[in-house]
């Protein structure tokens, strides 16, 4: 079933690509093939594969249990929040919190996670900012 759903997504993508290719504005300088043909070829390949998977799907993958699904959602959410907060509060704070959260998700106790997150953040800051001079996100406090 998962494969069939994926096949439908591929077919939908192929349709979208075909539509997207037809609305590409042609320019006045033009080679014989133009910018539309290659996308159309790719859309065709995508559609053909979609049909093939629809006809001969593989066995069902082992999807995570409900509890794991929620945990994965949390993890992705944490990464998105991390990125959003990066320019606001700066590298050190956001990375410490982000790493601590991930570490907690991977089974560290709260104390271990906080310590781990803090040391990862400070460690990266020292190596990449202070030693190698990479530009990291600066928050209002300058770090």
């Amino acid at each position: 079933m998962s494969d069939r759903i994926f096949a439908f997504i591929c077919l939908a993508l192929a349709c979208l690509m075909t539509w997207g290719a037809t609305v590409i504005e042609e320019s006045f300088i033009q080679d014989p093939l133009g910018p539309k043909v290659f996308p159309l070829v790719i859309a065709f390949v995508l559609a053909a594969c979609g049909v093939a998977m629809l006809l001969r799907p593989d066995g069902e993958p082992i999807w995570p249990t409900r509890r794991k699904q929620i945990q994965l959602l949390w993890t992705v959410g944490a990464m998105v929040l991390y990125v959003q907060f990066l320019p606001v509060v700066g590298f050190l704070i956001s990375t410490a919190v982000g790493a601590a959260f991930l570490s907690w998700q991977l089974g560290a106790t709260l104390r271990q996670a906080c310590l781990g997150g803090l040391s990862i953040s400070v460690g990266i800051y020292v190596v990449f900012r202070l030693i190698l001079g990479l530009s990291l996100a600066r928050g209002p406090f300058g770090f």
């Binding site: 990066l86 990375t95 982000g98 601590a100 990266i124 990449f128």
Partner: peptide, 18 residues
């Protein structure tokens, strides 16, 4: 892995941001 993986993730973010 509870320390390793968060470290890897954060270094990935640092690189791309860089």
């Amino acid at each position: 892995s509870k320390y390793l993986i968060p470290g890897v993730a954060m270094i990935s973010f640092v690189g791309i941001y860089g």
